[in-house]
Amino acid sequence: MRRGGFALLLVLLLPSSARGQVTVEEDYTSPQHFLFEIKFGPYSPNIDSDLSGSDTAFGHIFGSGTGLMVKGELDVEIWRGFGTLGVGGVFGYYGKSAAAFQDNSAGTTPSTSTTRTGSDTSLTLLPMSLLALYRFDWLMQRYSIPVVPFVKFGVNYTIWWINIDGNTASVNGDDAKGGTFGWQFNGGAALLLDVLEPSAAKTLDVELGINHTYLFFEFVHVSSMGDTKLNVGDTTWNGGIAFEF
């Protein structure tokens, strides 16, 4: 069933005029320099780790549930040999909103109200990363083992802002928007999908120049730096699909 579905996906990706009339040379492979990933994963920024005590801000308003982080990554493969070395750029988006609690405090202490209001407060993150990466695809190339482990390490910068009813939140003139530097580590494995439908994968390579297609899963640790910057890091995971071309 899955093989059939994947074949259908590949066929749909092809131009209609190309279907059924492709003649593929056995040893032909298109040039390979890039890898594009689209990935998703749960995310819950460690904002509350900035706070001392048991009271929370993010957890209090948004609860324990995580939000969805969506990321796109473009890697440039700069060396291919015993594996692949490259650099990658990542852009992402994360947004979470909830009804704000009624403010029953005197203005300086946290509210103790448990009544939600009709006002929405939201947090938006736009993470950007620059990563060095290594993909151990030698076994895949040499022995056709369809699993490619990889690691990535680099710096990130996350633009963030907090809104209340669509306007930037502000406390004593300090608007809730800024950026946080940090570092991050990714490690995971990618499953080569080509093995499921080799002929379709070959056609994809010949017609569109997509050398390989992967499903992957990765562990991610994002750490924020600076005592006066909002801690937007998290330790989480991503899953997605990657196209090597």
Partner: peptide
Amino acid sequence: VLAEDLWERYKRLGGTAES
């Protein structure tokens, strides 16, 4: 009514992040 947004709560709880 007054509502407490994330930034206000963060600051009131001693959050030191600045923009």
